[in-house]
Amino acid sequence: MGKRTTRSHKTFLLIASILLLIFICIQFIRPEIKNPPVTADLQAPVPVKAIFQRACYDCHSNETNLHWFDKISPVYWRVAKHVETGREVLNFSSFNNLAPADQKGKLWEAFNQIALGAMPLKDYQFVHTSAKISAADLAILKKYLTEMAVKQKPEDTAKINALNKQSALLQSSAGASPLPTAPNGVTYIPDYKNWQPISTTERFDNGTMRVIFGNDIAVKAIKENHINPWPNGTIFAKVAWDQLAGKDGNIKTGAFKQIEYMIKDNKKYAATAGWGWARFKTPKMIPYGKNAMFTTECVNCHKPVANQDFVFTPPIKF
């Protein structure tokens, strides 16, 4: 009896010391997290900036400030990865280098990632309790954004001219030149205008309005309530225009800004959340993205709605 206890005790000690040894060894496997200089830090009112500094700067700036418990491997590896990708997609330390419109866009996106519970990352927030965003914080951010929202000027001549220029151009050039293709191989689909709109959007964050078209497969899926996940072959086309305010303040579509596609194919596009993404800008249909990695941006922003197959729009039945 006593002998057996000592033996199992010994085995336990042996295993424990092996584990300890492994644990100590892995502490030396350390991806480095450097803090490069801050070149163009976010410019925002102090209370607004303080929220981002407290809850986001560990992963989205060059001022990463890790606690001792973040620095223990293997946890540390996960943290290092988060900091690396976090900085890649959004870095507040070089934020002011972005074009003003892009800065605004990122701030609205940041707010919505927080509001939808996607940021700060859940496991991080669990241990870094100080990173929690309170209702009061959200209210501060919301007020800041609301003041920043694009206000529409009635009969804005610059916008009217842009629209007229586009109309004239389209009237004169009904040519069928080769269709443009995005860096990930998705080609522009001109037939979208014959599809059903499944919804429309007024975007007061960036002063645009949109119509979201769905192809036949999408419309059928809506009719039959098979929309989570959407069937392969579903295509959405989202068209965005400038808002153009009339004399009475009512808003029409102005110049065409861009068209975006999402093409469902859970095998072909498995690496990008099951959708083929593409964006073409201006009536010239200039493909967006330097290389195929542009889809990261699309997927990341659509990620908070991953539980509805990455689709934001609640479709309307027609």
Binding site: W108, N112, T201, E202, R203, F204, D205
Partner: peptide, 13 residues
């Protein structure tokens, strides 16, 4: 119009 539940900054039907 109604506010989009999933995106502060958007209104939808």
């Amino acid at each position: 119009k109604q506010p989009d539940k999933h995106w502060f900054g958007a209104n939808i039907p």
